[in-house]
Amino acid sequence: MAAHPNRAGIRRHRLHVLARAIAAIIGGYVVTALAVACLARLLPMRAAEASITATLASFAIYAGIIVTVFSARSILRVWVGLGGALLVLGVGLYLSILTGGRL
């Protein structure tokens, strides 16, 4: 990381890191949860099998999101990406449960 010799620079850098961390840890978890839920409903197998498969994959999805958040070129891209995923997955999940119901 490039060293910022002045105090304002250091504080800006730390806020930047905090923003990425919140996006990755909390935002990433929410997106992962939605993705897992959607996968569980979409996978073409018995409900129980789909639920388990989606759960097994969840940690790989979460890790992938975290790595992506920290390598993205700007914090704006991060929020756009996470927000977009949240919207698509959230609406998709809502509609799926509305039409299909749960066991």
């Binding site: 939605l34 569980a40 639920s51 388990i52 989606a54 759960t55």
Partner: peptide
């Protein structure tokens, strides 16, 4: 990650 189960 209870979401997979809760979704179904």
């Amino acid at each position: 990650m209870p979401w997979g189960v809760m979704a179904n």
